[in-house]
Structure formats: C-alpha cells, structure tokens
C-alpha cells in the first residue's frame, strides 16, 4: 500500500478529527473562537472522564452500562452532602468512594457470580436510577451555594477546570494503561482470559479493579456535572453510557477486547463533542443531528475495520 495511505489508515481517528474540525472551522462562524473551543472542552469533560474508565473495561472484553445512572446517583449523593454542609474535600472523596463501591459490586458480581458484564451492569443501571430517583424524590437537589462553583466554572492557567481535570485523567490513566504491569494485564485479559489465568495473572482481581476505575471515574464526572449545574439531577445521564461507548469505539478500541488506547478515546470524545456543538451551530434540524452522529460512528468504525 502507498505509504501515505497507510499512514492515514493508521491514524484514521486523528484524520477524521482533522476533517471534521476543518469542515466546522470553514462553515461555522465563531467555531474557532477560543470561547467556543473552551466551551466544547467543558462539555466533553464528563464524557471524556467516563470514557476513560470505559476504555479499560472494554479492553478487558467487558462493558459497563451502569455509568449513566451512576452519574445521576452520585450527583444526587454529592449534592445532598454539599447541602448538609459537609466539607467540599470530604464530599469529593465520599462521592468517588461511592463510585468505587458501585464498581466493586459490579466487579464482584461479574467475577464471583459469573454473570456476564452486559447483564450485571444493565441490572445496575436500573437499580442505580431507582436510587437516584428515590433519594431525591424525583426532583433536583439544588441550592448548593458557592462552595462547588470553582469545580464547574473556575479556570487553571486559563483552562476551564472541568477540561483541566479531564486532561489530568487522560494523562494518568493513559500512563497506567500503557506503561504499568497492571495495564499489560488488562490487555492480556482482553486478548485471552483463559491463557491469562494459566499464566497466573490474577484475572478476577484485575477485572474488579477495572470496574472500580470505571465507577470511580464516573463518580468524578458526576462531581463536575453537579458543580456545573449547581444541583444534583436524578434524571441526568440517560444514555451517557452509550455516548462513552461510542467515543471509545470511534477511538479505535476493539469491542471484543484486547486492543485500544487512551489517545484514541481522547479523539473519540473530541469528535463526539465537536459534533454536538457543531451540528447545533450549523443550524441542522435536531432530527438530522442524531442521524449525522450515527453516520459518523458507523464511518469511524467501518474505516477501522479496513486493516
């Protein structure tokens, strides 16, 4: 194959990103403004952080459908704690703790009871939504005061704080996946679970950790969301799991496990976020906004099949 073409294939996600970026930059006034790019950055933070955990789960050959509801239940939990006057640092730790606990439950059910991840986390999706509604009485938990403002609206080195947290998460977890022994095990489990077992990798333990990462990161995302909305929303996050999965898959991670990179997910998340923003600004009727998103997912995954 022509070396240039093969270079494009290898970096197809980046190429897709660049094409969409240039297209929007030409056709949408203000798309390139710092203000717009930063607001896209803030908007993708929640999906980006969730998708990072999802990348780990999918590489092991699993799936985590519970993260959307987790976003709601952890958000309501977080908002209730803030309202009852608990110190912000403690609120953050407790909320992430709740996410890890939920991930731990997912992991234990999947590994010890041997129930498929799809079923386990689908059940958890339903259970967590019930808790979010029950805890809040179905209504938003609002009036959090200014304590949480910074997380949602503050800036660090003139980068919006949500975007900053997402970048830190990308770097830390990208490093863990690519450079640590644990990361190698994650790939090995996804490649072939039986062989990994025979080789003496602690498959169950590693899988449980992976679901804990997914749960903990979803809870971190919920803190950002709660701060941005200045309220806990029991109905939020419906379909957030699918957005995260779409971003991971667009980023080239194999749904069958064993292959994928965080950098791919970064571009996947950015593409999804740009589309949401750009399709509104292009003045495309909402009906067709959904269709365009679907086509981009199909295209991205379709191209990645041509290896």
């Amino acid at each position: 194959m022509n070396p240039f073409v093969s270079f494009l294939y290898k970096n197809k996600v980046t190429v897709a990103f660049v094409i969409i970026f240039i297209f929007f930059a030409i056709f949408i006034p203000n798309f390139l403004s710092l203000n717009n790019l930063m607001s896209v950055g803030k908007q993708i933070a929640v999906n980006g952080i969730i998708a990072t955990g999802m990348t780990f789960v999918i590489i092991t050959g699993g799936i985590d459908l519970s993260v959307g509801s987790l976003l709601a239940v952890a958000g309501v939990f977080c908002a209730m704690l803030v309202k009852s006057g608990v110190n912000s640092i403690v609120v953050i730790l407790l909320t992430i703790g709740l996410g890890i606990l939920i991930g731990l439950t997912n992991g234990l059910v999947i590994t010890k009871l041997k129930i498929a991840p799809f079923i386990t986390t689908l059940a958890m999706l339903s259970i967590l939504r019930a808790f979010a509604l029950g805890m809040s009485g179905g209504r938003s938990v609002s009036g959090l005061g200014d304590t949480f403002r910074f997380i949602g609206r503050g800036e660090i080195f003139s980068i919006p704080f949500p975007l900053f947290i997402m970048i830190v998460v990308f770097i830390i977890f990208g490093f863990i996946l690519a450079q640590t022994k644990f990361g190698t095990h994650v790939y090995a489990i996804g490649e072939n679970e039986d062989t990994s077992n025979i080789l003496g990798l602690k498959v169950d333990k590693n899988k449980i950790i992976v679901y804990c990462i997914s749960g903990g990161l979803a809870a971190l995302a919920s803190i950002i969301q709660t701060a941005r909305l200045n309220s806990g929303q029991p109905l939020t996050g419906e379909g957030a799991e699918l957005d995260a999965i779409a971003a991971v898959v667009i980023g080239g991670t194999d749904l069958n496990g064993g292959y994928g990179r965080i950098i791919g997910t970064v571009f996947g998340v950015a593409i999804m976020g740009m589309l949401t923003n750009g399709l509104i600004l292009l003045n495309i009727s909402f009906y067709y906004q959904l269709a365009v998103k679907g086509l981009v997912i199909l295209f991205a995954v379709g191209v990645s099949r041509k290896k």
Partner: peptide, 11 residues
C-alpha cells in the same frame, strides 16, 4: 436532561 440543556446554551 438539564446537563444537555446547559451544553446547548453554552454553544
């Protein structure tokens, strides 16, 4: 979803 509404307003 009020989170989606916020994103739209920002756009």
């Amino acid at each position: 979803d009020v989170a989606k509404q916020l994103a739209a307003i920002e756009s």
